[in-house]
Amino acid sequence: MKIILIFISPLAALIFSPLFSGIINKVKAFISGRKGQPLLQVYYNLFKLFKKGTIYSSTTSWIFRISPVLIFTFTLAATAFIPVLQIHTGALFKGDFILMLYLLGISRFFLIISAMDTGSAFEGMGASREAFFSALVEPVMFICLINIMKVAHTDSLAAALLDPMTSNSIAMFFSAIPLFILLLVENARIPFDDPSTHLELTMIHEVMILDNSGPSLGMLEYAASIKLWLFSLILALLVIPELPFGLLIKTIVLGLIMIIIAIIVGIIESIMARSQLFRIPQIIFGAGVISFLGFFIITTDILVW
């Protein structure tokens, strides 16, 4: 049973993550008064990319060719640690969320070096920024997740997310906000990065994949949307309240919360401008302060919510 459950999360990510990105796009279009692309446009795009031919830069090596596969695989594998179905499965092993974070880490590693492999100034720039910001994100992420687990008093992230206590607790507040910021940072959303263009102003994630084409680009785009899905899922599971319903309804509610998250992301992307680059570390630091404050409050029991 447990084995099958492990495969459900990646499968769901594989199926629904493009849709999630599609919803964000739709919201953005709606707010800016356009009709916008169809909801399933992301699927079409991916499909189209996988059918295209491939162009490689002459400066690249095998690193560049193998990276999309690795990035995709590791990102997909990372989703296995967060349950989509709200069945209390417990951890794969204690501290498995570390592996999840590090799988994202190794996929980032390959993303960065594949960008560097092209020998392009632009991609190097993106790689440099990605490396910096994600390094800052790591400890904040760790504290956020630890907060949730501390409240639930369990050493499994999956179990903690399903624990209703977390959504009632102050930890929800102190983890959800930083997590949401991290979601935006990690997935290259506005105000940190602009996912919709390849122009000079938006040079973190998108600029790193400038030279990818065809199926490789498809894999990278797919991986990006899976990652966004994963972060949203964590957030959604965190905020979902205790419901006296069956599994099906619970999952539907979860889906609704995911849609709400997507809408919020879409709204933020529509109403905010991309902030200055040097602000980003400050914002991440701010998120870190919030999460640490959360840890402080939870650990010392200063406030009982």
């Binding site: 400066t59 974070l101 880490g105 560097m116 190097g124 400890p139 992420m141 760790f142 504290i143």
Partner: peptide
């Protein structure tokens, strides 16, 4: 928690550092 957070930060920065080394010394032209 400070152990874990430090470790996380160290890990992230080490990643940045070695992508730098690989990217500039081994890759590109």
């Amino acid at each position: 928690v400070s152990t874990g957070a430090s470790l996380a930060l160290i890990g992230g920065l080490a990643l940045a550092c070695f992508t730098k080394v690989i990217g500039t010394a081994l890759l590109g032209t």
